[in-house]
Design a protein around this nucleic acid. Structure first.
Lengths: 149, 149
DNA sequence: ATTGCTGCAAAACGTTTGCACCTAT
DNA sequence: ATAGGTGCAAACGTTTTGCAGCAAT
């Protein structure tokens, strides 16, 4: 069975709060962890609808927030005004470079970034929870950039 | 007269494109550079309305984008789905820590971050334009956090 | 039995757009 | 004269909400 470990983690998380264990929540969890790449809440809702799910839009939106809190998925924000999510299933922590010409998003891992959030938070008297590091850039080689002429 | 230098820069920038020099645009520029702290486009529109400006909402939204391009203000995004702006008037480049309990935003300057965007962009074959580094954290000392019990 | 969750539709919110008129060039 | 800008209101896309019925505890 798929995502058995995630299911356990989510169940545990739900029980810790005053949240109920419902089939809808696991349906959303499965779909979110399966999703390739970054997705908006509505994107996921559409995909689920196409697979004949009966889960409502409202439930998708609410469940995604629970999945973020439980760290099974991550919340992202790439400069448009919509929230994107990303499955953490078998992923390591990474950051993003966004091409300002074509919108392409390149993921990268840089070891120098790792300690910064914790270090800076400590200095300022905070307990780090997460970070987001986005680089906005343009293709040097326009041939690689699909919307460059 | 205030913001004389900014006025010159903006004028030059406008001329370089096929943009016209209009009084409305300078009204928005003045208001944006004057604004203390981070603001949404609509926040600025309201403030201007309160000062009996007749500039329309549409013009405010459009002009702010021009001011970003001309680097007189910066575009920010702190995890809600709205665009915030920030005057660059007499400011150095900095990043932000957002308190997840009270929403307070702390600005910081860290020298280790400076070279990273350019270095990473080069490695990936991009030309860096800007970056955003946000740390999401919680107050260690709840007394400092206005919404902590 | 209680309290939380669901689905639905409507509302909210920030932002963008179409259009007729106006103004900088 | 012409291309571009403005103000207005309507439209837009995403997200949140209120509510009645339902289901997990």
């Amino acid at each position: 069975m798929k995502h058995e470990k995630a299911k356990q983690e989510f169940t545990e998380f739900l029980k810790k709060g005053k949240n109920r264990i419902t089939p809808e929540r696991f349906e959303v969890m499965e779909a979110a962890l399966e999703y390739e790449g970054h997705f908006g809440a509505d994107d996921l809702y559409i995909v689920m609808k196409n697979f004949d799910s009966t889960v409502s839009r409202a439930t998708v939106y609410k469940t995604l927030e629970l999945l973020v809190q439980c760290e099974l998925i991550s919340k992202r924000n790439f400069g448009e005004n919509t929230t994107k999510y990303e499955s953490n299933f078998r992923r390591q922590i990474h950051d993003h470079l966004i091409c300002m010409d074509c919108g392409r998003i390149v993921e990268f891992v840089n070891s120098n970034i790792k300690k910064l959030p914790e270090q800076i938070s400590n200095e300022l008297g905070f307990e780090v929870s997460s970070h987001s590091f986005n680089i906005f850039a343009r293709c040097k080689d326009p041939k690689n950039c699909k919307y460059n002429k």
